[in-house]
Amino acid sequence: ATNIVGKVKWYNSTKNAGFIEQDNGGKDVFVHKSAVDAAGLHSLEEGQDVIFDLEEKQGKAYAVNLRIK
């Protein structure tokens, strides 16, 4: 899926990971530091509006192509 709108639920820069809550009510999506880095960002803030694509690896959904809304 592409161009999904959501809000950062939480992001821990020590653990280099967090979750994004989908505005469409879907399951929360894992976001890794690699996606944050690829977006040219240093970190994510709780409640921040984002747009992202979903990629599945080994049955788990990940946020990729992250951008700030």
Score class of each variant (00 low, 15 high):
N3M: 06
Q48W: 14
K15L: 15
L66A: 00
E55C: 13
D37A: 13
N24W: 09
A38L: 09
K60I: 09
K33W: 10
A63S: 02
L44D: 00
N12Q: 07
S13F: 10
G6Q: 00
G26T: 07
D49A: 15
I20K: 00
I68F: 09
H42D: 12
D49V: 15
A1K: 14
K9Y: 03
T2Q: 12
N24L: 09
G47D: 04
E21T: 15
F19W: 14
A38E: 08
Q22N: 07
N24P: 07
E46C: 13
D53I: 03
K69C: 12
G25M: 07
A63V: 07
D37E: 14
A63F: 01
A61Q: 14
L41C: 06
L54A: 03
E21W: 10
I4C: 11
G40Q: 07
D28R: 09
S13R: 13
A35V: 08
A1H: 13
V64K: 08
N12T: 06
A1E: 10
K15G: 06
D23H: 14
N16V: 04
K69E: 10
E46V: 15
I4V: 12
V31L: 07
H32Q: 07
A1N: 13
W10H: 05
F19A: 07
K15H: 10
F19C: 11
G47V: 02
N24F: 09
G26C: 09
I20A: 01
N12K: 08
W10R: 04
S13H: 13
D49H: 15
N3W: 05
G25W: 06
H32S: 11
I20S: 01
S34P: 04
I51C: 08
G47T: 03
Q22Y: 15
Y62L: 07
T2Y: 13
T2M: 11
N16P: 03
L54F: 05
Y11T: 06
V50L: 11
S34C: 11
E46S: 15
D28N: 09
K7H: 10
L44S: 01
K69R: 12
I4P: 01
A39W: 02
N24C: 10
S13W: 10
D53G: 02
L54R: 06
N65G: 03
A1R: 14
T2K: 14
Q58T: 08
K57Q: 09
G6E: 00
E56N: 10
V36A: 03
R67S: 04
D28F: 09
G18N: 01
E21S: 15
I20P: 00
D53R: 02
K69Y: 12
S34H: 09
L66T: 01
L54H: 02
A61M: 13
D49T: 15
N3P: 04
N3R: 07
N3L: 05
D23P: 15
S13D: 09
G6L: 02
G40L: 06
I4E: 03
Q22T: 12
I51F: 07
A35R: 03
Y62H: 10
N12W: 08
G18R: 01
G26Y: 08
V8Q: 00
W10E: 04
D28I: 11
K9F: 03
E45N: 11
H42S: 13
N16T: 06
K60W: 11
W10V: 05
E55I: 14
V50A: 02
S13T: 12
V5P: 13
T2R: 14
K57F: 13
Y11Q: 02
I20C: 01
E55Y: 14
K33L: 06
T14C: 14
V29G: 01
Y11E: 02
N12P: 02
G47L: 03
N3G: 10
T2A: 10
F52G: 01
L66D: 01
Q58V: 08
Y11R: 02
E55W: 15
D23E: 14
G47S: 05
L54S: 03
A35Y: 05
L44G: 01
G59N: 08
D23V: 15
A63I: 05
V36P: 01
V50N: 00
A38N: 07
A61N: 11
F30P: 06
D49R: 15
N65H: 08
V64N: 04
I20M: 03
I4A: 06
K7P: 00
L66N: 00
I68G: 04
A17R: 12
